[in-house]
Amino acid sequence: MINLINILMQIIAYVFLITGIFFVLSTAVAMIRFPDLYTRLHAGSKCLMAGSISVLMGCLVLEGINLNSLKLIVIIIFLLVTNSVAIHVIASFANNHKIKSKTITKNDIED
């Protein structure tokens, strides 16, 4: 009976890992194919964050309740705060220096 629960936890952990690695691979494809700076920022924030959170959750299921799992929770919350701050810094820097994009269909900022 214990063996069955152990196998079930392994399956759940690998489902989390494969889902995360799909998001990380889609980040790399989107970095090459997207035509514009701002759309690349969308790929660099959302897809990368979902992938890294999913991979770390898979490691957390694989670990169990331990002191190492507490460090993994610290890494998740730290990445969630810092990456959103970094992306907003780059976006506001690009907006202040008038880097225009060609694919915008409607714009509210007058110039």
Partner: peptide
């Protein structure tokens, strides 16, 4: 963030 990542990664492929 997981829901929005699905929509962006659908545009990528």
């Amino acid at each position: 963030v997981i829901i929005s990542a699905v929509r962006v990664s659908r545009h990528a492929f």
